[in-house]
């Protein structure tokens, strides 16, 4: 297996901040014919924190899955840090973009926390010492140090969500894409998550229905409707526009 010698270690995260997410005229339809994305054009600057809102079925999750080539045509219409997402660059891209799924039971598929956080670094071909160091660092970042040998089914939802974030932080990504991170959390766990998101240095693209969290964490908001970018702008402007919110069924609860 190719070992990526040039793979940056944790210390290099900040250097890679000089990059962005770019989607050019991206469309996607599922094999069953259901169209999910129509001509998405989107540019996100380095270190930006962007919220992705819109009703269920608007294409938020589908868009996130395009960022690291799990879905999509791999024809270079999506690029990360200037690297087009193609079949040849897929392994680099997967290390650049950390994708966190909504249900931590899907994300955490290993018997223990350590195994799960180590999965990404191991499959990047890193040596054992580096893998262990990255696991320790990632767990410290999400405040879950000491949970290495715990089993996911012994942890609360909030703890599992944190570990889910750690499973991609250990790959030292430049971009984090999170799918509804605050869904289902109790107020205390949600507060902890918001604080975690505020401290993360990565470029953030987060799909959510939680507009109060958006206000706190994300300066920029994109509204997705029926697979199209319906609106893209500063969060405070969007939330002040009652007509726009009503049009897309959004409520600042």
């Amino acid at each position: 297996m190719t070992i990526m010698a040039a793979e940056p270690t944790t210390e290099h995260v900040y250097e890679r901040q000089a990059i962005s997410v770019h989607l050019r005229d991206t469309s996607f339809a599922y094999p069953d014919g259901r169209e999910a994305l129509h001509g998405i054009n989107l540019t996100i600057g380095a270190g930006e924190k962007v919220a992705l809102v819109g009703p269920n079925g608007a294409g938020k999750s589908t868009l996130l899955l395009h960022l690291n080539g799990v879905l999509g045509a791999l024809d270079g219409h999506v690029s990360i840090a200037g690297t087009p997402v193609t079949r040849a660059t897929l392994r680099q891209i997967r290390a650049l973009v950390g994708l966190v799924f909504q249900d931590p039971d899907d994300q955490l598929f290993s018997p223990t926390v350590f195994d799960d956080v180590a999965f990404g670094p191991l499959h990047m071909g890193l040596p054992e010492a580096e893998v262990r160091q990255r696991v320790a660092h990632a767990l410290a970042q999400v405040g879950m140090s000491g949970y290495e040998s715990r089993m996911p089914h012994h942890m609360s939802l909030g703890q599992r969500k944190r570990v889910a974030v750690a499973t991609v932080l250990s790959m030292a990504p430049a971009v984090l894409a999170l799918d509804e991170p605050s869904a289902g959390l109790d107020p205390r766990a949600r507060r902890g998550l918001i604080e975690l998101l505020q401290t993360l240095p990565q470029t953030l693209l987060v799909s959510t229905h939680d507009l109060r969290m958006v206000v706190e964490v994300f300066p920029r908001t994109i509204i997705l409707a029926e697979g199209r970018v319906a609106h893209d702008g500063p969060t405070d402007q969007i939330l002040a526009n009652a007509a726009l919110l009503a049009e897309h069924g959004l409520e600042l609860v």
Binding site: R94, F109, H123, E128
Partner: peptide, 20 residues
């Protein structure tokens, strides 16, 4: 299917690795 996607997203290529 969702787990498979989660594995792909973290660099799984069909080969399973573990620490020695």
């Amino acid at each position: 299917e969702r787990i498979y996607v989660a594995m792909l997203a973290r660099g799984y290529t069909g080969e399973l690795r573990s620490l020695n």
